[in-house]
Design a protein around this nucleic acid. Sequence first.
DNA 1: AATAAAATTTAGACAAAACTAAAATTAAAA
DNA 2: TTTTAATTTTAGTTTTGTCTAAATTTTATT
Lengths: 220, 220
Amino acid sequence: MNFTTSEENYIKGIFHLQQENGLVNTNALAAEMQTRPASVTDMLKKLKEKKLLQYEKYKGFKLNEAGKKAALDVVRKHRLWEFFLVEKLKFDWDKVHPIAEELEHINSVELIQRLDNFLGNPSFDPHGDPIPDKNGKIPVIKQQSLSEIPFKKNVTVSSVSNQTAQMLDMLKHYKIAIGTQLTVLKKFEFDGSLEIKVSKQNACIISEQVAKNVFVHDIQ
Amino acid sequence: MNFTTSEENYIKGIFHLQQENGLVNTNALAAEMQTRPASVTDMLKKLKEKKLLQYEKYKGFKLNEAGKKAALDVVRKHRLWEFFLVEKLKFDWDKVHPIAEELEHINSVELIQRLDNFLGNPSFDPHGDPIPDKNGKIPVIKQQSLSEIPFKKNVTVSSVSNQTAQMLDMLKHYKIAIGTQLTVLKKFEFDGSLEIKVSKQNACIISEQVAKNVFVHDIQ
DNA sequence: AATAAAATTTAGACAAAACTAAAATTAAAA
DNA sequence: TTTTAATTTTAGTTTTGTCTAAATTTTATT
């Protein structure tokens, strides 16, 4: 199955949001895509038509298996190109996103297979994100609870073991999500709470109980 | 100035035709672009609007200086990507055109500059066609048909004027490609066929018709 | 020179992907 | 439980690039 550039971008956007929240809603996707809710609704109809989406009017939506595979294909292309731009063309890693955003829409299975081999079949892109293989399998990484991380080490949030609404609400308040970069600054021995820096910006204090449920991996 | 994919394709099409005939006409461009004359007229208006074209209704048209520069930019991107696909990703040289056709529309000056450096600033693509530099300057090279080369002189294949599948199949069989080194050993007066040495290895005999279509230059 | 043929352009329509404004539905507050 | 607010969808429009069919202009032929 082949998709238009716009379809691929929406698929990627939905995939991104549903990884954090499960069900996705129209306004959130409109914000993610920097477009209007009405445009999102238009595209949702097309994606449902192509059987990539679980979607009922007014109810929220998410990608089905075919949709997820399509998303992983785009993610794979994006991350391989980012790797190429940084490792081969010597771009700074924070400059490559917009160019990879264009390259990812070139559809040639052979091109991507050969690029993958040329790059040495990398497992992670320059941002530390895993590169799915051609079957959509994502390499697993060594992850540790935030409560076990040494001070000053930069890590990335990879998952949250307690996904209750209460926990997600709390993390939302701290502006912590999958992919957020954290650094542990200090541990308060009184109650085991941690002072952490979020996204290289604001520092805050989280309880030991929260820290135990947040899993992170090396930033590489 | 930035152009849409469709505009770039038309610019390239006009450039190609005007190199052979000077003035271009609507039907010829429609055939070149595999589209309808009415669509060509629509695009001509846009390109004239953008001041890339000398065009008067019913009179024929051609690119002005700005248009030629735009065309050379696209040609440069196309040929650099073809070089990349063959030299780095090890594609067969007769398979890369459709992929380069997509890559050429990614517009990032820095990307192309870095790609050029990464590839070692090549002057000719894998088909032997010259790669314009970033100012649109095309490297010139004295080339002669293989049928005019004196005996025992070492030469390098620089281009093939007949690029049909049949010709490429034949050259593949003889192991002749762009960059291959050849020496003419003997001419058979009976039918004009030539005995040549390929890559300082095997000798073989090619017909006069093949020899006339293979262009070579001095071995630098 | 008049007419037929070919080439070219215009007029109007369509599909994709976006938008605005208004209507419909769901969720929250009084 | 109404009423209000927020969210989502529909209806209708716009832009880009394409198309068909008809009209116009140029070229070729009697």
